[in-house]
């Protein structure tokens, strides 16, 4: 396998690592989020009843909602919350998932059996169901949403990491390091992890995209981000009542969610490509 890839790469001119579309789009999403944190065109919760349900105009680029609040401002303010919940969930998924994956992949044996059975059990429930169960037990709230989505994403990260470590532990340099007296922890963290990090980073980026999407879904159900925090998912839920009269209301939040999720999917592609490029230079 490596041989085939190697030949293909050797025949191609070594490529300069260029920032792909994923990096640009992610940068754009982050920039808008930061902007929305510092300032928004209108205060996100400022009501202006006379200007309710206005179509997009120069004054309100994405229109206004049923209380006359500026939709664009609310989307910009909501970005921080969506991304923060998503990032929190991803951190939890990656830390716990990678730990489990490293241990099971490196040590194997009964530990592998026990932990992977547990992951299989988690995977037997669709992610959204796990998130709903956790919300049912712990109640709604930002932190609980992040926790729920974090647990939901962990099994996939664990599997990806485990597969990477199953390959990594067989490498000669790991054997050499072990022969020189390196501890298991050192072999895992210093030797295998840096060489097998690509699939984990790719999975993390996909996980972030999924977490943002799931947060929007939970908030749409009324079980995620709660008022008064503006939230993309809940905006869509509120917009549903007005689809007959205000087409723009449902349009902008949906586009925003799509853009953010798309950005992190593309980022996953770019990370994969960048690391392959670096590897073959």
């Amino acid at each position: 396998m490596d041989d085939v890839v190697g030949k293909a790469q050797a025949s191609a001119r070594p490529r300069r690592a260029v920032a792909g579309p994923g990096w640009w789009l992610t940068g754009f999403v982050l920039a808008i989020t930061l902007w929305g944190w510092l300032a928004t065109p209108y205060a996100p919760n400022e009501m202006n009843v006379p200007a309710r349900l206005q179509p997009p105009s120069w004054a309100h680029l994405a229109g206004t909602d049923e209380f006359g609040r500026d939709i664009l401002s609310r989307l910009m303010a909501g970005a921080r919350i969506s991304l923060a919940v998503g990032a929190g969930a991803m951190t939890l998924s990656v830390l716990s998932g990678a730990l489990i994956g490293m241990l099971t992949g490196y040590f194997g044996g009964w530990l592998d059996d026990a932990l992977m059975r547990l992951m299989d059990a988690l995977l037997a429930l669709p992610g959204i169901v796990i998130a709903l169960l956790i919300v049912a037990v712990w109640g709604v709230g930002l932190l609980n949403t992040a926790l729920a989505l974090g647990i939901m994403g962990a099994p996939v990260i664990a599997r990806v990491t485990r597969s990477a470590f199953l390959v990594g532990r067989e490498m000669d340099y790991v054997l050499a390091a072990r022969a020189l007296g390196a501890s298991a922890a050192r072999a895992i963290l210093k030797h295998i992890l840096p060489n097998q990090i690509t699939p984990i980073l790719v999975a993390a980026s996909i996980n972030l995209a999924g977490a943002i999407l799931a947060e929007a879904g939970l908030s749409y159900l009324g079980l995620g981000t709660q008022p008064p925090d503006p939230s993309w998912g809940r905006m869509l839920q509120e917009a549903q009542r007005y689809i007959g009269v205000a087409w723009w209301y449902a349009l902008a939040p949906g586009l925003t969610i799509t853009l953010a999720v798309f950005a992190f999917y593309l980022l996953a592609n770019d990370i994969q490509r960048a690391l392959i490029d670096r590897h073959w230079q």
Binding site: A209, G217, Y220, L236, I257, T258, V261, F262
Partner: peptide, 11 residues
Amino acid sequence: MAVPSFWVALL
């Protein structure tokens, strides 16, 4: 894959 299915539903 990035489009939320519930948004598609609304559209």
